[in-house]
Structures are given as structure tokens and as C-alpha cells.
Design a protein around this nucleic acid. Structure first.
Lengths: 222, 222
DNA sequence: CCGTCTTCTTGAACACGTTCAAAACAAGGA
DNA sequence: TCCTTGTTTTGAACGTGTTCAAGAAGACGG
């Protein structure tokens, strides 16, 4: 038989059980004792693999991000319009995250804690963050959009921030199928695209420059 | 002697003690037992007045907001430049909130929960929210800025959202004296002001219109 | 097979937020 | 003064996340 570390099996059993229970009953109503019992291990054992209840969802977070990267790349392939590409990427995230909104809410609340390793701005999340920004870079580079070159370099990071804003809206969105979030994307993306295009106009140039500078300065030690 | 309800004294004693301990040791490290002991009451008594530990900071939240309204109004009096007024209001908030950033962080994390009554978007917070938006309306109306009239009506709400963004940045800001947050305000406010002025240009008009429409539609059931 | 060292597992114990039945107190009215 | 009714106060008890000392199970060289 293949040498699969027994410990990996246990670890994965625990996280799978946790995700099932979170989805069934919500994050708060799922106790560590229930997770341990469901996985057939002791509560202490769960803490041997995961340092906290919060930590249990990091794996889940990574899973969503991975699915999103794959699906979004497939969906924008061939499309060259900037707005269409961006819209597809964001709607794709909403599709993938939809089943988890119920407990995803609780999750993203924890992630709002700047001290938490789950924060999208934390060092621990830098890998996932870089991957997401990379996707946005593909959105820009694979499109035929014409941009102020200064803006172009910064745009992926800006778009990632915009995506964080969409997520924040989504967390608060209680409409059926999150259709309000979808509307936000459908209608704000064309606006952004037009703003980006306007950035090449003369009147707009200094403003655009200053925005880029500001972001760069703010990023210097973040 | 004046008829001050004994119960009001107890209530205020509890909240005062709580705020002192929160500021001294942080929110997490302050236990309800410590608060009760510090106030010389039983733990059950604290729960008679406040339904939860979180609820204890609502009073504090209100206090900061009240201070901000007063101080900001005084400081913008006489000033007529839109950018200057807005900048003053935001820097004023940073000044007032500074001593509490340490545990304020924890507080604003709780407030990020959409289900929490502490959320700035919740019904329970609508009074405070309306007051803040009202202040932004004063910022606009007391200034000599020329605006697309459609935008003018919506602007106070947009500025309030912008303020929420600044607060979000501030929560994550670990620089000394929150000088990064100050830089953000100092430099983003002029940008906003220029954008607002640009909104009257012909090329910009349709974009500006659509932004206003989108916000209105999104606000319809929020 | 034995001894030793590391990895894994256990469940009792702890600290904390929260609840609740019961007691103490306050204010009238008879 | 006593009874009644409503308000305030108490502290033991509960459920939860988390810790930890101790033991079980493997891994491996001899």
C-alpha cells in the first residue's frame, strides 16, 4: 500500500468533518467537541492539528481561492474586452462562494481582524493574496485596454482591493442568490472600465498620476 | 438631594469601569468578572444592565461619535473650501479615536459582523449613521463647491462610505500616531475634491450619472 | 525482541461569556 | 406595621474554546 502518512488522513478527516458541520449548522453553532466526535477523535487531537477553531477554515479559504483561480482562468480565455474579463472573474467568485455565504459571513468577520492570520492583508495570507493579484494582472494583460502606463502597473493591485470591496458588500448581502452583489458587479465594472479609459485624457492625467503615487506610498510599508 | 435613579448610577459605574479596563488591558484580556469586581457588583448584575460584553462598548461608540460631531462642527465653522472641510472632519475623527485604537481595533472587528447590532449598517446603528451622514451634508452644503446637482444629493452618503473606508484602513494601521491614516486622508481628500469638480465636465457626466443611479438602486433595500 | 526517541492521542481541567432561580431591596397601600 | 408588587442583585451552574500532563503507538538502531 502507498505510504500516505496516517497523520495526513487524520488531519484531512478533521477538516472535512468541520466543513460539513459548518455548512450544515453554521460556524457558531458547531462546537469543537462536535467536530471531534464527528471525526471520531478526541478534542485534544483536533488541537494537535489545528491551533484554533478559526484555523480550521484556512484550508477552506484556500480551497475556494484555488477553485476560483481555475474556473476564472478558463472562463476568460479568449475574451479580450477588459470589462468583460473583469466582470467574469468577479461573477465567477460569487458563483463559487454562494453555497458558503451562510457561514462564510462568520468566516469573513474573523478575517477582518488585522491581527488574525486569516486577514487578507496578513503575512500568512500573502501567498493567496499574490495569486489573486496575479489573476487580476492576467485580466489586464490579456485584454486590449489602453491605459496610462503608470496606472497599468498599479491596476492589478487596485482591482484586488476593489474585489475585497465586493466581498465586503457580499458579506452584508442578504438578497436571494446574492443578486444585489451581482448587480453591483454588473454595473460597477463598466464604470471602472470607463474610468480607466478616461485616465488617458489630459484633464484626468494629473489625478490619475496622484492616485498611483498615493497607492505606492501607502504600500511602502504595508 | 436630587432624585438620580440608583440604577442609573450602577449602570454608569459599570460602563465606566469597563472602559477603563478595556483601555488599560485591551478588550480580550478584560473579563466580565474583572469588570464586575472592579465596579463592586456581581457578574449577573452587569448582565442585568448590558445584554453582552459587546453591548458594553455601544455606549463608548456613541460617545466617540458625539465628541466627533461637536468637535468637527466647531472646526469647520467659517471654512468654505470643500476639500478643507472634508479633510478637517476626517482628521478630527482620527484625533478623537487615537487613544482608543488599541482596543478600538477589537471593537471594530466585532462591528464588521453584519448580524451584530454594532455594525454601522445595522438598524440599531441607524441613528448614529444618520448623524454622521448629516455631518457630511453640512460639509457639502457649507462649502462653495460646484457640483452636478444629481451628485450633490447623493454625495453625503458617499462621503460617509468613504469615511468607513478610512476607518477600515485605520483599524489596520500600525504606524506611530496612525500617520499612515493621516497621509491617506491628506492626499485622498484633494483627489476626491478634484473628482467631484470634474463631475461637471461633459465627458464625465454620463459616468457620474451612472454612479449616482447605481448607488440609488443599491440603497433601495439596504 | 528490546530500549529509546518521536509522533500522535487522550480526556480531564481551566477560563471565560452567559443564564437563571432565588434572594434582597424599594415603594406604596391597607 | 405588614403585605404586595416590581425592581435590583446575587452567585452558582452551564456550555464553549483551549491547554496540558500523561499515556499509546510507531519508527528504528542494536
Amino acid at each position: 500500500m502507498p505510504h500516505v502518512a496516517k497523520s495526513e488522513e487524520t488531519r484531512s478527516l478533521i477538516v472535512t468533518t468541520a466543513m460539513r458541520l459548518f455548512t450544515e449548522n453554521g460556524y457558531d453553532r458547531t462546537t469543537m467537541r462536535a467536530i471531534a466526535a464527528g471525526a471520531g477523535v478526541s478534542v485534544g487531537n483536533a488541537y494537535y492539528y489545528f491551533s484554533s477553531k478559526e484555523q480550521l477554515i484556512q484550508g477552506f479559504y484556500d480551497e475556494i481561492a484555488r477553485q476560483h483561480l481555475d474556473a476564472a482562468r478558463a472562463r476568460i480565455d479568449g475574451e479580450t474586452a477588459f470589462a468583460a474579463r473583469l466582470k467574469t472573474v468577479l461573477l465567477c467568485w460569487l458563483d463559487i462562494a454562494e453555497p458558503y455565504q451562510r457561514f462564510g459571513t462568520q468566516f469573513f468577520v474573523n478575517a477582518a481582524d488585522p491581527e488574525s492570520p486569516l486577514s487578507p492583508f496578513s503575512d500568512d495570507s500573502s501567498a493567496a493574496r499574490e495569486a489573486s493579484i496575479g489573476l487580476m494582472r492576467e485580466v489586464v494583460d490579456g485584454s486590449d485596454v489602453k491605459l496610462d502606463p503608470e496606472l497599468r502597473g498599479q491596476l492589478p493591485e487596485l482591482l484586488w482591493l476593489y474585489q475585497m470591496g465586493v466581498v465586503l458588500f457580499w458579506v452584508h448581502d442578504r438578497s436571494a442568490g446574492q443578486k444585489r452583489s451581482r448587480m453591483l458587479v454588473e454595473r460597477s465594472v463598466p464604470l471602472l472600465a470607463r474610468l480607466a479609459a478616461l485616465s488617458r485624457l489630459r484633464v484626468f492625467r494629473p489625478v490619475s498620476r496622484e492616485i498611483v503615487d498615493l497607492i505606492q506610498d501607502l504600500a511602502k510599508k504595508d
